[in-house]
């Protein structure tokens, strides 16, 4: 009897703390954000209200939709690029590389940058991509280009390169995990049934690794969608992302209500993508 009560108290603590944490640091802030989004800007600051003016502004002024569109575009390009690079890499590690030590080393080679500060890595790309940077000097040294190219830095291309580099570990990890779980005898069974390794890859490996791909794509996409540092450090005059507009509303424009409305829209987009991918992942799941 007493044991059961102690058990219950213990369980309460065990579950209570994380729940308290989620309520205090996630739900309450989101609630505050949502509340602000109905307030109204009124010089010098803003006033409590309940109206949808901020959301209407987001719809009616073309700049907000065009920034959201650009952010989606960059997030898609980065996620696809990361996938195209990460999948063959993970496949090679799991299926083709025989030496376990080398496999570990290569895997950690991709993951290791996560231990280095994001800002530091983004700054690093500035020195690589600059007009007098490493990339231009190398290309000129090899005689491939005569004049330094300035498209590498302060452009959307620079943002895609930087974001792909920064978020690619989030693509590699789930794909690697998914590939590793595929039983090897399925490969052999497919071969026994007379299928070429190409068909086996497309009809066995790819479908079975799909949950990993979806997870990786979702992670990379959402991280990109909310990024603001890449635009700030390596973006060009056409590099503004949603997160940058939000900071400007909370700062320069001093319009917290509009900034909150934009943040809520962003949150809805991310949640929609996560629940979509969750559904997709459930459907793609296979029991062995």
């Amino acid at each position: 009897m007493t044991l059961r009560i102690i058990d219950r108290i213990g369980m309460g603590f065990f579950l209570g703390l994380p729940i308290l944490w989620i309520v205090l640091f996630m739900l309450v802030p989101y609630g505050v954000l949502l509340t602000y989004s109905f307030w109204i800007k009124s010089y010098p600051l803003f006033e409590p209200a309940f109206q949808f003016g901020n959301y209407l502004t987001l719809l009616n002024e073309p700049q907000y939709l065009s920034v959201i569109g650009r952010t989606l575009k960059i997030a898609v390009i980065v996620s696809v690029t990361a996938l195209v690079l990460a999948y063959p890499f993970a496949y090679f590690l799991v299926f083709r590389l025989k030496n376990a030590t080398i496999r570990k080393v290569l895997f950690f080679g991709v993951i290791a940058p996560l231990w280095v500060s994001y800002l530091l890595r983004a700054y690093l790309w500035k020195t690589i991509l600059g007009t007098q940077g490493v990339l231009n000097s190398t290309l000129m040294g090899l005689g491939i280009i005569g004049e330094p190219l300035d498209v590498f830095l302060y452009s959307q291309a620079a943002m895609v390169i930087t974001l792909t580099y920064i978020f690619i570990p989030f693509m590699v990890m789930p794909i690697y995990a998914a590939l590793e779980k595929i039983p090897r005898n399925l490969d052999e069974a497919s071969a026994d049934l007379g299928q070429s390794s190409w068909t086996t890859f497309w009809r066995v490996t790819v479908p079975l690794s799909l949950p990993g791909v979806v997870a990786g794509f979702t992670l990379t996409f959402c991280l990109c969608f909310g990024d603001f540092v890449a635009a700030f450090l390596v973006g060009g005059p056409d590099g503004l992302m949603v997160a940058n507009v939000i900071t400007s509303q909370f700062g320069a424009a001093l319009d917290w209500p509009l900034g909150s409305a934009l943040a809520v829209v962003m949150l809805v987009v991310v949640l929609a993508i996560i629940s979509l991918s969750d559904r997709f992942e459930q459907r793609a799941k296979v029991q062995f």
Binding site: K41, Y43, E61, P62, Q63, Y64, S66, V67, R70, P237, D238, G239, L240, V245, S248, A252, A253, L254, D255
Partner: peptide, 18 residues
């Protein structure tokens, strides 16, 4: 700029959003 500050900042943002 008083209550015109938002108009200036948003105009500048709209240039960058193009």
């Amino acid at each position: 700029l008083g209550d015109r500050m938002g108009a200036y900042v948003n105009a500048w943002n709209s240039v960058k959003a193009q």
